[in-house]
Design a protein around this nucleic acid. Structure first.
Lengths: 228, 228
DNA sequence: ATTGATTCGGTACGTTTGTACCATTGCCGT
DNA sequence: ACGGCAATGGTACAAACGTACCGAATCAAT
């Protein structure tokens, strides 16, 4: 395990001083990302200080230096994931709106779905990068929801995340002609979450395509308008 | 290290286990239910042999007697939850179909949604707490999905669960006039899961009503029919 | 009543866990 | 050059962990 070769390999100064390891605040970020990746790859019960540190290539004590406790580490990791994903969503939606405004047209169902699914379907092959950052973020976000279901401290964070999606996607749906944009956005996001989780959980990555199913849903919602 | 067989045994001479601790196979079930409740209340990382045993009111060694390992216990608990929920779904759907056949009419959107949401509004005998039962079953099923996302052994179980829902709900939607019942069922189940998780995660139990939102969705899907 | 198999439950053991401690190191204003 | 303070990282430790062990209790069939 340990290599007590104290005399054989003296730590060369150049190697130590170069940023082979992140230092300072960058180390904090590295620990957060290691936490998210571990959460997605191994599950919540595999999250330990030692595994996080090893996965980040950092010493054990760095985890307790930058985070008060294991719970604090998990909370901050989920906040980090939420903030990053919300920023991504607003960026993607803003780009779409500007693009449509320039053309003087409404966003299509396909474009709206593309914004929603942006982190999940970069390229078509989902198997190409099964342990990638997108999958990690996705699984981490669902792990957050389950944690938040029983931990009030996380519910505010989860609510903010959910509201952001409904706000942004609702704006897009309104432009597409939805008569009840906020409600439709909630349904669309719920369906997207459900489809993606089902896809991950069943491993049936070739049986159906979330994108086409969701486009059908958007068209149905917009076409039907408000009931009564 | 094989666990005791789960094959059917002849009934013991009398139901004498009223006041005493459960014994035999009943003890196995008690451990499974304790596992599910603990999973919902405390999360996956709080699942330990000692906590499960204590929650079931049984000695520590009973957990390793009836289940080879902690992983085996978790797997069997999720299988138990899936089988029970699938049976409940088929029972509820069958009752609705018979009722509609007797009246010579199609099931309404509200009735279909009621079948889907049935576990959330009706307490079941094995889980005691009327309000906790829905949460426990729901959270356990979502925990299963996340576990299955990274554990192939659970994907078959998760796939069977998902297929059962699509099969049963698809039949109901077809009767209601859906032109693409299987696809619509997938969307409806995904939306239901997403809405319920969002409700649990954000704690916004008064902000919206999944039932009315899902009825809107069903009407939209049925009305729009097959595109192209 | 005796027997053999199953079930029960107390206990023990080696490992892993979260976290605390503290000497050392790098950075920066003086 | 040199203090100081933040950051680093090796180590320590009690508690909790999964699991193994084995005598006692219970049951079905003789």
């Amino acid at each position: 395990m340990t290599s007590p070769t104290t005399s054989a390999r003296r730590p060369t100064r150049s190697r130590r001083l170069s940023h082979a390891r992140p230092r300072g605040q960058a180390r904090r970020i590295a620990l957060l990302e290691a936490t998210l990746e571990l959460l997605a790859e191994q599950g919540a019960d595999a999250l330990t200080h030692r595994r996080v540190a090893e996965h980040a290539g950092l010493p054990l004590a760095s985890t307790t230096y930058w985070f008060d406790s294991k719970e604090h580490l998990l909370t901050e990791a989920l906040r980090y994931a939420a903030e990053r994903d919300e920023a991504r969503l607003r960026r993607a939606a803003g780009a779409l709106v500007r693009h449509c405004d320039a053309d003087g047209r409404a966003p299509s169902a396909g474009e709206i779905v593309a914004v929603v699914l942006d982190p999940c379907v970069e390229g078509e092959p989902p198997l190409a990068d099964p342990h990638g950052a997108e999958r990690a973020a996705l699984l981490a976000s669902y792990a957050l929801m389950l944690e938040a279901a029983r931990r009030p401290a996380l519910q505010a964070l989860s609510l903010q995340w959910s509201d952001a999606y409904r706000d942004v996607v609702g704006e897009l749906l309104a432009r597409a002609g939805s008569a009840r944009a906020a409600d439709d956005a909630r349904i669309l996001m719920a369906a997207a979450d459900g489809l993606l989780v089902d896809r991950l959980a069943t491993g049936s990555e070739a049986d159906f395509e979330p994108r086409t199913e969701l486009e059908r849903l958007v068209r149905a919602l917009v076409a039907v308008g408000a009931p009564r």
